[in-house]
Design a protein around this nucleic acid. Structure first.
Lengths: 240, 240
DNA sequence: ACCTGAACACCGTTCAAGT
DNA sequence: ACCTGAACACCGTTCAAGT
């Protein structure tokens, strides 16, 4: 019925020179990922969002991988800025503050979380190094409290793996509805049948009402207990 | 030069009825993933590998997601069978044995590792439940040692996150050459510059020669130390 | 009931331009 | 120097058949 039945592909005007730059594209990539998700970020969708031709993206980033690497480095910068430097008086409070904040920042920002803990294949040294400034202060605090540098590093590593693992699991649970804890999740799984063959788990699951946060706290506090035992052992045998 | 210059698409003979089944496809999917990787497993490549038409796959699995879910469930079955049931006398030895084996089985089989710890979006309750039989025995052992069922569950959860996190990181390091530990990895990163602004890390890194296995062991032993402190605390205050 | 090729919408990327 | 559409190889999936 329209006067124009031919395919008219809604042509976009050609952008003027210099109207695009790498930062602009990077910001658009974050904006679009936040609207939808990092998984659904494609070069075509990004170009449409920015109202530019797809191929223009390739002038600033040689590939999608390169763009994702830039996003990852930027994610670590943002992450670094949101963290408050470790400044508690006692080493255990410093650890608590650091890793609680580590977790909550990533929990509140799915895109940053994906770039920091899920899509680890895009992490570049530049991004890591920036973030490591906070880690350095935390390590210094641990060494000051009596841990050897090697112990401090291993303690940091172990807790870092635990926090990132917690965030990773939270992220994957988000896809299937609201985030529940391990106990609640398991309860639902056991409900699907075969519960009678798993008596200890069934009992534990019905005795537990721990939230994801409770479960995280348990792991964190348990690691701190373990580290305290390391220090206590040193104090008892001051020779080594 | 050949007598036939026309495009001849190397036609495959039509398969006879009943010559394909779901198990056959699943086995082929594992075989092909092992040759290459799970990431590079596509429906077309799988069909070619099995010498069937792509669309035939869709008679047995409605989608690639459904095929991956079947692979995930099978991965948990294989994983379960490779684990030896927890049978050590002391609870801490049982924990050690369980989580060391947990880690080494996944370390030795990248495809199973990917399905169990990386591609968690495909995990179905059926797979999890099978595996949980070993977890049930471990939990029973912990409760027998004096932990409450809720504590035992949280301890299991915390260590499970740590082990899976360790395997996840090992997997991502495999892509970029041989697997190194956190310390060695960081040393290389710091070498890229800016080391002087990170004195504590630099010192720790040069003081540490821990392998990935050492780092895993530290985290495992530290968690066990923490749990031992929980028991000790109970013994000291027998009221609660 | 089972197996299939053609076709579709989408993906990342390259090429050969336009300005 | 910067921006672009057409085209390519590949992806998962649907459809309308063949047997």
């Amino acid at each position: 019925m329209s006067s124009n039945d031919e395919a008219e592909p809604a042509k976009r005007q050609r952008r003027r020179r210099g109207s695009i730059n790498a930062e602009h594209i990077l910001a658009g990539a974050f904006a679009l990922s936040r609207e939808d998700s990092l998984d659904n970020l494609t070069m075509l969708r990004l170009a449409d969002h920015l109202d530019i031709g797809v191929t223009s993206l390739y002038w600033y980033y040689r590939s999608k991988d390169e763009l994702f690497e830039a996003m990852s480095t930027e994610a670590f910068r943002i992450f670094y800025e949101r963290m408050t430097p470790p400044e508690a008086e006692h080493w255990d409070d410093a650890l608590r503050q650091y890793f609680r904040e580590f977790r909550s920042i990533l929990k509140d920002d799915p895109v940053i979380c994906d770039l920091v803990v899920v899509r680890v294949e895009y992490i570049r040294p530049e991004g890591l190094i920036v973030f490591m400034r906070h880690a350095d202060r935390l390590l210094a605090k641990l060494v000051g409290a009596g841990f050897t540098p090697a112990e401090a590093l291993q303690a940091y590593n172990a807790l870092s793996i635990f926090v990132r693992g917690s965030n990773f699991i939270d992220r994957s649970r988000e896809a299937g509805g609201h985030v529940q804890g391990f106990a609640a999740d398991l309860k639902r799984t056991l409900g699907a049948g075969e519960a009678e063959t798993l008596p200890a788990l069934t009992a534990a699951v019905s005795a537990s009402d721990a939230s994801v946060d409770d479960e995280f706290e348990f792991g964190l506090e348990n690691a701190i207990r373990g580290l305290r035992a390391v220090l206590a052992d040193k104090a008892a045998r001051p020779s080594a």
